[in-house]
Design a protein around this nucleic acid. Sequence first.
DNA 1: TTGAAAGCGTTACCAG
DNA 2: CTGGTAACGCTTTCAA
Lengths: 328, 328
Amino acid sequence: MTVSLKDVAQKAGVSVATASRALADHPRISEATKQRVRQAAAELGYMPSAIARSLVKQETRTLGVVTTTVTDPYAAELVRAVEDAAGAAGYTLLLLTSHNLPRREVAAIRALQERRVDGIIVISPRGVEHYPDILAHVTVPLVLVNHTLDHPRVRSVMADNRQGARLAVEYLVDLGYRRVAFIGGPTTSRSARERLHGYTEALRAMELPLDSRLMFPGQGRAEDGRRALLAMLDITPPPDAVLCYNDLTAYGILAQAWALGVRVPDDLAVIGFDNIPFSELTAPPLTTVAQPTEAMGHTAVALLLRWRRGEAVDTVHFDCTLVERATA
Amino acid sequence: MTVSLKDVAQKAGVSVATASRALADHPRISEATKQRVRQAAAELGYMPSAIARSLVKQETRTLGVVTTTVTDPYAAELVRAVEDAAGAAGYTLLLLTSHNLPRREVAAIRALQERRVDGIIVISPRGVEHYPDILAHVTVPLVLVNHTLDHPRVRSVMADNRQGARLAVEYLVDLGYRRVAFIGGPTTSRSARERLHGYTEALRAMELPLDSRLMFPGQGRAEDGRRALLAMLDITPPPDAVLCYNDLTAYGILAQAWALGVRVPDDLAVIGFDNIPFSELTAPPLTTVAQPTEAMGHTAVALLLRWRRGEAVDTVHFDCTLVERATA
DNA sequence: TTGAAAGCGTTACCAG
DNA sequence: CTGGTAACGCTTTCAA
């Protein structure tokens, strides 16, 4: 059914070896036969089998990406950056999602290894504690975005979440806010833990009391923001500002505030985290902490590719910046 | 370096053939040897090569997906649905993005065919006019989401965009709005053309004048909404409602309205299209036309899989529904 | 400059 | 129930 190199060779009247070399533009093939082979290939609509090539070359020119879900705008942004960088280098992406389940994450890594990808990028890992087991068998290099793991076959690309959270709290306090609340993220997320850390650290550094009633749990969903705002209103005195685990949570606050008539930032200042594209479209536009997502995605790919070339590579850290808009 | 079936066979003291069958749980292999082989495989951390398997089986259990960009929430939603359905059926996704460039889209289809994917799903195609050329060489089945093409190897999954747009306009007119504007989408998008069609059709059906000054161009970006609102304010009398090509454009209207103090829906009613997740979080929450994205993604995969099994499959159509929230 | 043949890691057919 | 071997489609020595 599908035309193979053999067919091309036959049509051009040469051996498969020659046909292969001709199409690869091998130097020691006469221009004449090259022409003939190319012609034959074109006429037959020949499309080389990457599968067969991978088997002999022992490389697939494919990178595996595992992420929680592409519907998370932050993850999507990262996937986009990774796709761009990979594509530019001639690599294609095999995409698997974990839906936040450690088990699925590990299964994904395994599946990718079976497909012999040249490297794996895990965006916001959720199950690193299981990695040591699987890494005993997985032999491809792994790059973790937003997590670290001490293992010879693992490197990381990190945003400094602690510094980012500190930045936000300091900004709020400088603005005069004194009762700064925090809405956390999933406990399985390293970023969430670090942001919480940055929050408490900043408060301490600025000699402000740490009030546990001002710290709300969350899963990074808008729903968590809505709920937290409701809970905040029951506290006396209520917080005058809130740092959210992510922008989505901040949207929840904004939506609920709008519904309740709570004025932002007059009654309550809010700062998000991630600076996803919609954050400049909220009413009011969201002040938030940004990560250099694009650079992080590019770096993840670059790390993997340099690593494969045998170069020594090391984990990379990026600073966060504050994007001042209208909610604080 | 990496352990192959040969190693497993050796360790278990059987032939590769037997090892292969044992791991495949072939019926005519003694339980004893199965155990021995499995044990050996486990001890060596054997991971079968999907590449080698694909070569002999002539199938990759991989589906190719090409989309404009995963950062478009609508596309992301579709990719998610496709991933879920594919994953459930034991298929993995090879993801390529076109960034709206017909050339890249065609190149992507070609690349996927070279990788011998079992089927290709193109989300919101941008270059179908070039398909006939490439389809002469591409042999895998193609499913188009949001476009059609009359070709034996192509099927489609469609939302009825015209009906959706009509629904929205009728809803507005029923509510008493009389000067309904429309902000369009990219001319390369079939959905955009159909939505415009539905808009004019509905106006005509309701015997309302078609005013070309009320039809604004756009690319589906928030920016287009912002710009359109500014332009609308210069018209006398200004429109009292607007149907947007998509939710993103509607966000632009909302953001600009907030900045200008234009009240929604009192001064201007707004309806979006796509019902992406954020639309329930805008202030006010966005009234919008929804497509059954989940079902569409699942259907795209089901179509492809049934097709491969040799069943006769046909293009599927879905109706849109109106999600009433607070902007109209 | 070209060809024959080995080999990549599997599966599947044919014997035994 | 098990083993030998061909085959999948390509690249890459090794020879000529």
